[in-house]
Design a protein around this nucleic acid. Structure first.
Length: 263
DNA sequence: GTGGGATGGGCAA
DNA sequence: TGCCCCTCCCACA
């Protein structure tokens, strides 16, 4: 489930459960070789930038985690069960443990590497002070379809394939419109909508974009099949106009949209 | 039981 | 552009 909201949700949970004292760090799978160098050190902070998760340990060492498409984090109360062979990293404190499974990245980095990582990310709508005009500059200068730009982490950090499809539907915007054809007003509308939807996603832990379910209090009640307007709804009718929802490959990812509502 | 996708991204060519 | 990695799950035999 890893789009930006997932990462921010994990960061929030891990901040309250693991930061501020020594943490046991192990790699039951054995593939996170540096685990031993961190074991027992104090965890100072946990931060999310787009889809990247950073654990800051004593001495400006950071664990950089990226879940990729399959990665998962499972956090629960102690006692922890025996770790399976797929657990890349296990964090443990007295009351809690967390298992990281299937990440595309889990490595130890220093402050310089962290700075380089952050430098190639666009503004993250879930971070306070993020500046949407930085993203607009990139969009305005590009002939790429807006649907490709929204997924480009150096333009905006944190949007994935579900939010991309749903944001464009909610904006009534043709996914193939070139970035330079998108006005600043339209962009600011999308940015604000991104913040609304993703904040709701952080709270609820799922992506619900259909009205009125994106009001957080409702989201638990929405069936999975009713949670989206177009994402993975190929072969079904658009919920607004009954046109067939379309799907097409765009730079290696499946794009979903309604050709009528998104003229 | 098997195979193909899936909310990602880096890399070579 | 296509290939590769990482894991889980579901549709289909």
């Amino acid at each position: 489930m890893p789009e930006g909201h997932t990462i921010h949700r994990i960061a929030g949970q891990h901040r309250t459960r693991f930061v501020g004292g020594p943490v046991s760090v192990t790699s039951p799978q054995g593939r996170f070789l540096e685990a031993g160098r961190l074991d027992g050190r104090e965890l100072r902070a946990v931060e999310a930038y787009g889809k990247h998760l950073l654990y800051e340990f004593d001495g400006r060492r950071y664990v950089h985690v990226h879940l990729g498409l399959f990665g998962k984090v499972r956090t629960a109360g102690q006692p922890a069960p025996p770790a399976g062979a797929t657990v890349r990293m296990r964090l443990s404190v007295e009351d809690w443990y967390s298992d990281l499974v299937g990440p595309t990245r889990c490595r130890l980095i220093d402050g310089d590497q962290r700075a380089m990582l952050l430098a190639r990310l666009g503004p993250d709508p879930l971070r306070r002070g993020a500046d949407p005009s930085l993203a607009f500059r990139r969009i305005q200068a590009s002939r790429q379809p807006i649907a490709a730009l929204l997924m480009d982490q150096s333009v905006v950090a944190g949007i994935g394939n579900v939010y991309r499809a749903e944001l464009l539907f909610r904006a009534g915007l043709d996914p193939y419109r070139a970035g330079l054809e998108v006005s600043e007003d339209i962009w600011h509308g999308i940015w604000n909508d991104t913040r609304t939807l993703m904040r709701s996603g952080v709270r609820s832990g799922r992506i619900v974009t259909t009205e009125p379910a994106d009001r957080e209090s409702m989201s638990r009640l929405v069936r999975a099949s009713d949670a989206h307007y177009v994402y993975r709804r190929t072969g079904r009718w658009c919920r607004h106009c009954r046109t067939d929802v379309r799907a097409a490959d765009l730079t290696g990812r499946t794009l979903y949209w309604c050709p009528t509502c998104q003229g």
